[in-house]
Every structure is written in C-alpha cells, then in structure tokens.
Amino acid sequence: MEQKIAIAIDDLTVAYNYKPVLWDIDLQIPEGVLMAIVGPNGAGKSTLLKAILDIIKPLAGSVTVYGKPYKKQRDLVAYVPQKGSVDWDFPTTALDVVMMGTYGSLGWIKRPGQTQKKQALEALEKVGMLPFQNRQISQLSGGQQQRIFLARALVQNASIYFMDEPFQGVDATTEKAIIQILKELRKAGKTVIVVHHDLQTVPEYFDWVTFLNVKKIATGPVAQIFNDDNLTKTYGINYKTSITEGKL
C-alpha cells in the first residue's frame, strides 16, 4: 500500500559549534502515524524537531512538509516544546497561553478576538482544563501545564503535531489523558510525532518508531522494528540492564 509522505528529510546535518548533533539523516514520515522518536540523551531528538520546524538552521540537507518547505506549510504544523523551555512565572493565564496557538493563523499585527477565544475554550475543554482557564500559569501543576501546552497545539488545528517529551514530569492520569488525545488525533487522520523517553510504553502508545542516535538507526512500524537488535544499536550493549535498573 502506498502511503502519503507527511515529512521528508533528506541528508539533514545539524551542528552546534562545529560538532555534529545530527548526521546525514534521511527520514520519511508517512501520513497518519503516531510516531515515537527514541534515543539516548544527546542523541539529537529535540534538535531534529527544531530543524524540521525551522527553529535552527541545518548545516546541510533539506526538510519538506507535504512536498514543500516548512515556511510555506506553517499552517499545517503544530509544535509543543518541552515544558521546561518556558518561564511559567510569566504573568499570564492558562486561557491566554492556549490563545497563543491561534496567533499563527492570525499572522502579524492582527489581534485575537471572540472566534479565537471560543477555539481556545474548546481546546481547554478537550484537555479537561476548562475550570482552570483563568488560573495564573505558575499555579498549575506540572501535568496541568502540559495539558495547557497540548491545548495550545490543538487550537492550531494542524495536520502534523510535534511534541517534545510531553510526558516528562506529569502524573499518571495526565499521561493517560494525553495519549488518549494523541490517539484520537491519529484516528482523525493527523500525523503525530513525539520525542519519547520511556521505552517500556512505546509498543502500547505508538504505531511507528524512529531510533535516533546522532544518525538514524531505524524507522518503521513498531510491530516490525521495535526489537532488541535496534535497541542495542541505539542505546549500546547494556540497554537491557539499563531498562531493568530504570536508567532509561
């Protein structure tokens, strides 16, 4: 069966201060998958997302979104950065953060109005955060903050969702709620790409997986390629003991 390709990455190399973080990555992500990117610390997982989203400039190579450069396809993409990448003491409310998801469709200068507010409230409702809409964001728990970030992405009503470690520092209930929403997105035909740390939950949560450690190790359906061979290639020889010792 021929699947449509959502993201095509060709020969992508990214370097910080002359040290390659990603090396010659070729990767095709089919439309409609719920994909985990896994790899050890420093493997370049977040960097890969940022390079796709044009947040950092690659040294070489190209990325296309449905066959066109990202700059022309912004409307199709929503991004959830790591929770720790922002200052939660910023003077604003949960609703206002979710509203920021609508800024992309508004473009420069135009201000959000009632339509945008309605969209934001709907997204808050979906992630179960409606009662907290006027809460100052520093007064939310880690799990609630992550839900707010997810709501902000939902508001963008994109075709492709990128999430950088959405399960980090969240409680079990929130983790279940988030994966539920991601599965619903996939059912609706969206493509969801998640930087993920917990190897044990990969088969349960995802249907597609990419192993990354500076180079691309493997990519494909979880059922076919999520095996000891690829885990060893990605994490080194001791991945099994590392899992049992809880290091990964």
């Binding site: 940022k50 989203l53 044009d54 947040i55 700059k71 912004r74 993409v77 991004y79 950065p81 990448s85 922002v86 200052d87 910023f90 604003t92 953060v97 920021m100 800024y103 992309g104 508004l106 420069w108 200068i109 201000r111 959000p112 902000r152």
Partner: peptide, 22 residues
C-alpha cells in the same frame, strides 16, 4: 500596540514564536 501579541509570544515561548513564523 501593533506588536503586543508578537512581543508576548516571543517573550514567553521563543520556540513557539519561531515555529509560527514570528
């Protein structure tokens, strides 16, 4: 007044601002 929204999002979350094209 013109760029309030852009200033706010770029200050709070530069990564999101960049991905939205701001």
């Amino acid at each position: 007044i013109l760029f309030f929204k852009e200033l706010k999002v770029a200050t709070f979350d530069a990564g999101l601002a960049a991905s939205l094209g701001f």
